[in-house]
Amino acid sequence: MPELPEVEVVRRGLAPRTVGRTVTGIELLDARIIRRQHGGIDRLRAALQEVTLTAVVRRGKFLWWRLADADGADTGEALMGHLGMSGQLRIATGDGTAFTPAAPSQGPASDPLRHRRLSLHLDDGARVDLIDQRLFGGLWTSALVEAPDGALAAMGSPDALLPTDAAHVARDLLDPAADLPAIARALRTRRSGVKTLLLNQQLVSGIGNIYADEALWTARTRFDTPGSALSQRRALAILRAAREVMERALEVGGTSFDALYVNVDGRSGYFARSLNAYGREGQPCPRCDRLLRRVIYQGRSSHFCPRCQRRTM
């Protein structure tokens, strides 16, 4: 599943190609991709008729476009997107052909023809294709509300407004308005394992399995350490490690283990080459040479070093 760095790569790719463009049509190929849309395709078409995309915004793993009507006034709604497990937002050029990867990716690539579920047609002749092999993602509209803290809603936002359907999602660690000491204190009030807490999108958003394992390896903390056992200093160290590893992933386009995650041009990210723990079961720990282990913890794989990340209860 794309995590925060991968979704931010997509947002940055969409911004210069879609902001300022007017939606001229919607092509729906599979109604399941709009299952979250109240009123179905008719409501979606009405909400997007001749609207201009004024910003592309991201909080955690949620993306949305801000919308303006023909007079330039905000419509009061956002067009939300979530990539789910295998979703891609790809830009097709003005002649209707999709960009192709600079180099082929390995793995179960989504077929841009078979798995194209919806397309937004823009006034410059380009289109935005939502491609989703497993159909866990989607597009839908959501009314705007003000962020409770009054700060800019998220990355790329022009103001404090965010979609109602993203209002429950906590700020992420790349958000300048994120209060790391407050998040650390919240982690320390819970008895659940720290990895479970990092994956809780209501505490801190955008972190998934990959970056949780990498952050905990960096902070020398075992995945099942209770949040209540953390000092404030250790909790902050974990959050800062997560932020740092996601910033490094963002610099190289995110993490692609297969072609289910690519950017808007169809290119893969290369952070998989820099991972220290995730996916490296049986290989030497880069820090101490002890063989890394993988265990199933609450239904998820957790990769860790048994020497550097010892049990603390």
Rank of each mutant, 00 (worst) to 15 (best):
P2S: 06
V7R: 01
E8W: 08
L14G: 04
P16S: 05
R17L: 12
T18M: 14
G20E: 08
T24N: 04
E27R: 15
A31C: 01
R32V: 11
Q37C: 07
H38V: 12
G39I: 08
R45D: 03
A46C: 00
Q49E: 13
V51P: 06
L53S: 02
L53D: 01
K61M: 04
F62K: 00
W64S: 01
W65A: 04
A68L: 09
D69L: 13
A70Y: 10
A70C: 02
D74R: 15
A78H: 13
G81H: 15
G87P: 11
A92L: 12
G94K: 14
D95I: 14
F99Y: 11
S105W: 07
Q106C: 00
G107V: 03
A109V: 13
A109T: 10
S110N: 13
S110Q: 09
L113F: 13
L120M: 12
D123C: 10
D124E: 04
L130S: 00
Q133L: 12
S142F: 09
V145L: 12
A147G: 05
P148V: 09
P148L: 09
P148Y: 05
D149Y: 07
G150Y: 13
L152M: 11
A153Q: 03
A153Y: 02
G156V: 14
G156P: 09
A160G: 07
P163Y: 14
P163N: 09
T164Q: 15
D165M: 13
D172Q: 02
L174K: 01
D175Y: 12
A178K: 02
L180N: 00
A182W: 04
I183W: 04
A184V: 01
A184L: 10
R188S: 00
T189V: 06
R191A: 07
R191I: 01
L197Q: 00
L198I: 10
Q201K: 10
L203R: 03
G208Q: 05
Y211R: 08
D213P: 14
E214H: 10
W217G: 04
W217P: 03
T221Y: 01
R222I: 03
D224T: 07
L230M: 03
L230Q: 03
I238A: 02
E244A: 15
M246N: 05
E247H: 03
G254V: 10
D258A: 10
Y261H: 12
D265P: 10
D265T: 14
F271T: 02
L275E: 00
N276Q: 15
A277W: 03
E281D: 08
E281Q: 07
Q283H: 04
C285A: 03
D289S: 15
R290V: 07
L291K: 12
R294S: 04
I296T: 14
Y297C: 03
R300P: 13
C305S: 02
R307N: 05
Q309I: 01
Q309C: 01
M313F: 15
